[in-house]
Design a binder for these strands. Structure first.
Length: 221
DNA sequence: GACCAGGCACATC
DNA sequence: GATGTGCATGGT
């Protein structure tokens, strides 16, 4: 799959961030949000010259929220960025080099303990900001793998991650490119199952109208 | 106007 | 443990 995607689409050049800190902020802002909306927010932060740990720490949370408005959930996300900064200041003196000097497994545990940082955000930070060979799983990854019958439709994050990491040697550049390619393919070729307009609850076709769902999936590359 | 987007936390049963 | 819900903007 990796070779097929790379041959078809070429290298994706992820993560689209200039600094490690920018990658971390972007990882929070892109939670359940399209990157285009995040990019606008990042640009506003850059123009405001607050895209450093020290400057963002000094920025009031409501001001931060307004700057990242375009990325959606801005009050929630401003709080999450602030919680991360509180963690970074309290344990590492706002120093990212000190943060990433830690052993990666304990660092992952620490990141997951920060409210607002879940598995995907933690792993994105580790891989794309820290260069740690850990595979990032997202909605596209699961959708593509389940459509190919490689995982169950309700497979967990950890199960999906273990499938990749059990089959591939730990290689950060490869994990980086692989995940980026899955996202690129997913955006274009692996769309969500449409809602069932005939169903009064408008639930997932897969659950309520399995026959129609199978027909859709059969047409979905 | 509905749907979707590179999640996560929390309430409820 | 499973399921539902709030958070919110901007593009298609």
């Amino acid at each position: 799959m990796y070779r097929a995607m790379l041959d078809a689409l070429g290298p994706q050049g992820w993560w689209p961030g200039r600094t490690r800190f920018e990658v971390i902020v972007g990882a929070v802002l892109t939670q359940n949000t399209s990157w285009a909306n995040v990019a606008k927010a990042i640009e506003r932060l850059r123009r405001a010259r607050v895209l450093t740990p020290k400057a963002l720490t000094a920025l009031p949370q409501d001001r931060l929220a307004q700057l990242i408005r375009s990325s959606g959930y801005y009050n929630v996300k401003a709080g999450r960025v602030k919680r991360f900064l509180g963690f970074l200041r309290g344990r590492y003196g706002l120093n990212l080099s000190r943060l990433f000097a830690r052993q990666s497994s304990s660092l992952r545990t620490e990141l997951l303990a920060v409210p607002g940082i879940g598995p995907e955000t933690a792993d994105s930070i580790l891989l794309y900001a820290g260069g740690v060979p850990i595979f990032v799983v997202d909605a596209y990854t699961r959708r593509i793998l389940s459509r190919h019958g490689l995982i169950a439709a309700d497979a967990t994050y950890d199960t999906t991650q273990a499938l990749f990491m059990g089959a591939l040697p730990p290689n950060a550049p490869r994990y980086n490119e692989y995940h980026a390619l899955l996202v690129a393919v997913g955006k274009t070729y692996c769309r969500p199952v449409p809602r069932c307009s005939a169903c009064p609850l408008r639930r997932d076709l897969e659950r309520h109208c399995p026959t129609t769902a199978r027909r859709f999936l059969a047409l979905s590359p």
